[in-house]
């Protein structure tokens, strides 16, 4: 398959991730959509690695995975803390920074 197909797939997955972030209210689902976006970008990197004929893309994708894991850890800890204090996991709850 040509690289174009993989990249189009990556674009679709990324867009769906963005849509999820914008539309869903549950913090966990929003976080999962962010993970989806990261995965889409990983796919793009790996596709380009094959396109360019070297392994740099794969290396970067590897690092992205590591960092994403660390980020998930911290993010979920935050969500748990928020849930403990506010008893709600909605992203619309903290909305005091308004006019």
């Amino acid at each position: 398959m040509s690289t174009t197909h993989y990249l189009v797939l990556s674009a679709i997955l990324f867009s769906l991730g963005v849509l999820g972030v914008l539309v869903r209210r549950n913090a966990l689902i929003v976080f999962m959509c962010v993970e989806m976006m990261l995965n889409a970008s990983n796919l793009a990197f790996v596709a380009f690695a094959q396109q360019n004929g070297n392994l740099y893309g794969q290396t970067i994708a590897f690092f992205v995975m590591v960092v994403a894991a660390a980020e998930v850890v911290v993010g979920l800890a935050i969500i748990v803390t928020i849930y403990r204090t506010r008893r709600s996991a909605s992203v619309d709850e903290p909305s005091l920074l308004k006019y």
Binding site: L22, V23, D92, P94, K98
Partner: peptide
Amino acid sequence: MRRIQTGFARSYAL
């Protein structure tokens, strides 16, 4: 223009 600041993270993301 103030009303743009809704306080919702999702509007800002939009």
